[in-house]
Amino acid sequence: MISVWDEVVEAALMGTDRRPFSSINLPGAAGDLLRTAPGLLDAATVVWAHGEVGRRLVPHERTLRDGQVDDDRPLLSVGAVRALEVIVGDRRFLPALDEWLELAVRAGGRPPGEAVPALLDAVRDPQRPACCRVVGPLAAWLGARNPTWQWATRVRPQWPDSAQPHDAMVATTRQGDEVAMAALETAPSETLQALVGSRSGPWSAALTEAALDALARCIRAQRSGLMALRTTLPALAHVVDPEKADEVSALVEVVDGLPDKERAAARAYWAASLASLAAMVHFRRSLHKEFS
């Protein structure tokens, strides 16, 4: 059924120059008013005002409800959720998502619903099982409704390495710390690269200190192999002990202490690289604090 309003919209769309407007009828007082309204614009205004003022909502036959998500776990802390917002909202901190997911799994809470869409958008394939474990049944529920997240309906919400093997791994690596620290003394650049490639974090405080010390010596000496070390820094940010964040910041002084003959570009490069390394480690320290 075409309403009176549709009729005037149709007439206005065409324009009265092309199709002259013939009057319309409404019951009651609005109809009386319409009879005094000469043109299309007057008539439309009466119909519009009548429709707006008299707008009543008619109950719909079909119900909208479509399944409810039940999840009894408590919400993660406000700080943990804020950290997640930073991670998914800022490309520079996105590499910390793995660590956030691990901490969230250990904490056992769930993120509030409003934080979930951005998390689902941000996770990479290998992070999906951990993500589904943290988000809980809401992940699959949303996946069923948004094709972009359809993967969430298929992923088994498992944690790929359970916490136990992780702890075991940390224990075994500690046995190798002394060997690694000795190697850092003799071949700092090569050992740093090898360590970052082979050993996931978090490193012990002692190993972290030895690694930072080795890095400082490499920069100071501008040794060969320094170019190769450049690609190591972003990964290093994720394995060092976050409690050593202040020591990472102090590395910038090493650059300040470089002799003036060093090229300005090299100095600027190292200052910028170390600043972003420090920013990430400081962020990780705050992240651990939020979950502790």
């Binding site: 409810q68 998500v69 619903g113 869409p117 949303l142």
Partner: peptide, 15 residues
Amino acid sequence: GPIGWRLLAVAAGRS
């Protein structure tokens, strides 16, 4: 889009 999905995720089918 994003606000709609946030809203849906917050409500999660509940009233």
